[in-house]
């Protein structure tokens, strides 16, 4: 129990620091100084001490319950994806239990909680935000499913168990694919990188929170502890979604890439090095997928976003899937 709580706390803090790095990096790109990297952590500490206001028009139980459920499901997601990978790279193979189908469903739950909390708040801004969040949720669903299923399918013809997380860790797409498969993999990666900012509600896909249009939309009525829960959910989701991309596309470790292991004075420090390498990969994925994109683009309209995901991104992911299927180096079913 104590270990579990410690892991969650470390994971949440890592997520908050990831958000801090994102803000600092964006500030650097915009020629600003930017906040300290620990700023999201300070925000949470401050919000925890602030008064929580519940609007009189709100449906009380749903409005207060939604952020809690969102945070809990976010943490479950973190344990499922990031923790099992950390267990794998640190050599604790027995602790790995995970299934990609569950992950797909778990990704949905925080968003659904935010939507229901926003509708329950009774604010018109929040309900516009919730409608937009729903549109984004539905239009990004197909690309996520296609990407995950194609990667799992390519595992299926090996001796590994498809849809299990630990087979993904060991059986990497790039190692077993021919030219078609690599091209398909790149397309799938592109689709997933575009889905990441939409799931994180960042520019150009931050319509649900659009500050200048609907004043933070879904979050508009939240304050104090409830807002802190939503920000924590956001941080946890950032960490787990970027680690999902790392696991699907770059599950390499120093051990299986170079056959290296590290030790100091007889003690093996390989687990520490591998975890650090994992965190660096997460930061790179998040910087490319979220930070760089939000710096170079303006916010799109919700109609443009729906079109982009339903047609362009879905098409990219399906083409990627077909290319992997056509790859002669991988056996057809």
């Amino acid at each position: 129990m104590g270990v579990a709580i410690a892991i969650v706390v470390v994971g949440v803090i890592a997520g908050l620091l990831l958000k801090g790095i994102d803000r600092k990096l964006a500030a650097f790109m915009q020629s600003r100084i930017g906040p300290p990297i620990a700023q999201p952590l300070y925000d949470i500490l401050k919000l925890m001490q602030k008064q929580t206001i519940i609007p009189s028009t709100a449906v009380r139980w749903l409005f207060t319950g939604a952020p809690v459920v969102a945070l809990v499901s976010g943490i479950v997601l973190l344990l499922y994806i990031s923790l099992s990978y950390v267990c794998y790279i640190t050599g604790i193979h027995s602790a790995i239990q995970g299934d990609l189908i569950v992950v797909i469903y778990l990704i949905l739950i925080p968003s659904i909680c935010i939507i229901s909390g926003a509708f329950a708040s009774g604010s018109p801004y929040a309900s516009i935000g919730a409608q937009r969040e729903m549109v984004i949720l539905m239009s990004t669903e197909l690309p996520i499913a296609v990407v995950v299923v194609s990667i799992a399918w390519h595992v299926a013809d090996s001796m590994y168990n498809p849809f299990a997380l630990n087979s993904l860790f060991e059986y990497t797409l790039w190692n077993h694919a021919g030219a078609f498969g690599i091209l398909g993999g790149i397309l799938l990666l592109l689709a997933m990188i575009l889905v990441l900012p939409a799931e994180m509600s960042k520019v150009p896909f931050d319509q649900a929170e659009a500050e200048t249009e609907i004043a933070e939309g879904v979050l508009v009525e939240y304050s104090g502890k409830l807002l802190a829960f939503l920000l924590l959910t956001d941080a946890v989701k950032a960490l787990s979604l970027s680690s999902l991309i790392v696991i699907l596309f770059f599950p390499y470790t120093f051990a299986n890439l170079f056959g290296l292991s590290f030790s100091i004075g007889g003690y093996s420090i390989s687990p520490l090095v591998e975890v650090a390498f994992f965190l660096v990969k997460i930061i790179i994925v998040y910087s490319v997928g979220v930070t760089a994109l939000r710096v170079i683009m303006a916010r799109l309209k919700i109609s443009q976003v729906a079109k982009l995901f339903l047609f362009a991104v879905s098409a990219i992911s399906i083409i990627g899937m077909v290319l992997i299927m056509l790859d002669p180096k991988m056996k057809m079913i």
């Binding site: 915009q30 520019v203 916010r299």
Partner: peptide, 13 residues
């Protein structure tokens, strides 16, 4: 105007 459409980089520049 850039800030209104969420293009904060242009706003800063």
């Amino acid at each position: 105007a850039a800030h209104e459409i969420g293009f904060d980089t242009l706003f800063m520049y």
